[in-house]
């Protein structure tokens, strides 16, 4: 075991860690935002919208994330240059980067998995509470905002730590489309130092620490969130 490369590459690992954390938080945040309507339309609302949402969840959960990522990156990447004038537009520097594609792919994935969970969460809110809200004369949106959504989010909260960990563990896939997260930096070290195990073990240790921190933070948060009786 040779660890003399660690000090040299430490700054790179720090920036890789920053990229990983950005990927993680952005995709969980936007994924959860998308998951709320995806879950909701499967429980209420027009049937065709529910069917689309259900189809979306099935496709996202039934295909490998790696394929989704490559389809978005290489597929959309091949599509964009054909749009006239796009190279001159202000969007081009963003579209040329791999990072937004990774965020998009992980967001879609989180939305697919968490949308299914949100569906169950909306469904499991007791009917009586919704009826009580209606009896108070609440409109549909007030009911959603003040009763249904908070109660559903309360139900979903314990699954959130698992979703964070799952997404964290899929972020290394971004390295296959040239995003240099922790894992990507580890691959650079492997190529430049010709060491195989040490960089991988170092990367694994970072992920174990991150997982531990996520679990601890959510345990702490969970004690502060009021539990349904």
């Amino acid at each position: 075991m040779v660890w003399s490369w660690v000090p040299e590459y430490l700054p790179k690992f720090v920036s890789g860690l920053w990229i990983t954390l950005q990927l993680l938080s952005l995709s969980v945040f936007f994924g959860m935002l998308l998951a709320i309507p995806i879950g909701l339309v499967q429980v209420t609302g027009p049937r065709w919208l529910g069917a689309i949402a259900r189809g979306f969840c099935t496709v996202v959960r039934g295909t490998p994330l790696l394929i989704q990522l490559w389809l978005l990156y290489y597929g959309l990447g091949a599509l964009f240059p054909m749009v006239p004038g796009i190279r001159e537009s202000f969007l081009w520097p963003v579209l040329r980067e791999a990072f937004p594609f990774a965020v998009l792919a992980f967001t879609i994935s989180v939305a697919g998995y968490e949308g299914e969970i949100m569906r169950g969460a909306f469904k499991s809110v007791p009917k009586g509470e919704l009826e009580a809200a209606r009896a108070f004369g609440m409109g549909r949106f007030t009911l959603l905002r003040r009763i249904w959504l908070p109660r559903a989010l309360q139900n979903v909260f314990p699954t959130l730590a698992g979703e964070f960990v799952l997404t964290l563990k899929s972020t290394p896939l971004a390295a296959t489309i040239t995003v240099f997260d922790v894992y990507g930096v580890g691959s650079i070290v492997r190529q430049e130092t010709y060491r195989i195990y040490e960089p991988l073990l170092f990367v694994a240790a970072i992920y174990i620490c991150l997982t531990g921190i996520i679990v601890l933070v959510f345990n702490w948060l969970e004690r502060r969130v009021p539990r349904p009786a």
Binding site: V165, L168, K169, S170, T171, P172, L173, A175, Y183, G186, L200, V203, A204, Y207, I208, T211, G212
Partner: peptide, 8 residues
């Protein structure tokens, strides 16, 4: 369960 599958 704490390490990404790719690394494993």
């Amino acid at each position: 369960r704490a390490v990404p599958e790719l690394v494993l």
